[in-house]
Design a protein around this nucleic acid. Structure first.
Lengths: 227, 227
DNA sequence: CACCCTCGATGACTTTGGTCACGTCGCGCG
DNA sequence: CGCGCGACGTGACCAAAGTCATCGAGGGTG
């Protein structure tokens, strides 16, 4: 129960709720343990209500007709999943798949959540901020997809990771997964990593990356031309 | 003044305001006439407050380092422009440029708008819906950019236009502008239009398009393979 | 009318990225 | 140990799309 409340307090559109209201939410839902590969949402279907990740990870993605995958994000403890239907009543705009064994979810039905939202205007205020942030993220991704090369997007991916984990780190995912993130396929990730290496922006030893020229990497990520 | 109120009533996050509040907003801002090419927002700068289009058209876009343009949307009478900064306090996520001579805008300062939002919870509720809708649009655009070909995106563009204007229409923009919409350049638009023609999905006479096989066009827009 | 300017079409070429096919390595397991 | 499986790397190839250069058709203007 405490874990639930702690997680809810990290959800952008719930964190401003008073304690007692949070406790009501925490009591209104159920927990659920899932295994890697479980499908939580399927694009186009009606939403299952509010889903909050208590532990583990959930991958949000879209698939094209031939099975190629685009990862929109990976949500971990304290994030909500697929909340859009709660706010506008539409269907799920993307699919969600459990990414780690033993992932723990907390879920509240759509009706209950809507009642709660009616009772607490703070939720709407928080939702506005949360949606605005998501909007910005999507705009950046869209720009990158439409106007940047794979090379540039991969550089941005590495930079983002370096910002969190320092300039030396092992690649956190398989090449195939990285490909889904940056919008390409596994072979091209492999090649492009080596190209960044040749360009002198990073060093590679096996799966271990060292960003040796962050400025160069940033330049590759931002614009596209020279070097 | 009446025109202002009529326009405000069409803005997704203001339409639910009571009459008197709307009248306060209408009185709180100023009008402004602009010419084609005027820049209203510049990506990364601080927002100018609430902007509502009263007449004419405004283009929302991003530019890459080499000047290539990605059009995110075109807003006409009754739409607001660049409202994201109002909701999360950040900077403009994209640029906005006046697309027609004699475009008429109504603007309210950010402070005034924020005060209004604090006084009227209906605004937040409406904003949630408006942002959710935008979110969905962006997700679709992102999917199309990442997973669809130019051919497919152009087919979708034509279909969308056909849905509004019937199966026969003149192309509404220059090839360059269409290119910015679907994420490519003028030459490729030209070629791909002719390719769709060869495939039998549309007929072309000059700039006049007739969708002669909507089902085929839809298939091209949705998946990508055969035909 | 002559001049420019914009826009569209189109051919030739290059680059980028996706696809296919294979070989390798590491690892878990029967 | 030997086998299969999954992940990586890589070369060869191909397709999609961007670039460059050129031409021609309006359309407005001095």
């Amino acid at each position: 129960m405490d874990r639930r409340i702690a997680a809810l307090r990290r959800v952008l559109f719930l964190k401003d709720l008073p304690d007692d209201a949070l406790r009501v939410v925490a009591a209104a839902g159920v927990e659920r343990r899932c295994e890697r590969g479980d499908i939580l949402l399927r694009e186009g279907e009606v939403g299952p209500g509010l889903l909050v990740v208590l532990a583990g990870a959930v991958k949000l993605c879209k698939w094209d007709a031939r099975g190629r995958e685009l990862i929109l994000g990976v949500e971990r403890a304290g994030a909500s999943v697929g909340e859009l239907p709660l706010f506008d009543g539409g269907n799920c705009p993307y699919s969600a798949e459990v990414a780690e064994d033993g992932t723990l979810l907390f879920s509240v039905s759509g009706e209950r959540f809507r009642a709660l939202m009616a009772a607490h205007p703070a939720i709407a205020a928080g939702a506005v901020r949360a949606l605005a942030v998501q909007n910005r993220r999507l705009l950046e991704m869209l720009k990158a997809q439409a106007l940047h090369t794979v090379r540039s997007r991969l550089a941005a991916y590495l930079l983002a990771h370096a910002r969190q984990h320092g300039n030396a780190f092992p690649l956190p995912e398989s090449n195939a997964a990285i490909g889904s993130h940056v919008g390409t396929v596994r072979e091209v990730v492999s090649r492009t990593l080596h190209a960044l290496c040749d360009a002198g922006a990073i060093r590679l030893r096996g799966r271990h990356v060292t960003v040796c020229d962050p400025a160069l990497l940033a330049r590759i990520a931002a614009r596209d031309e020279g070097a």
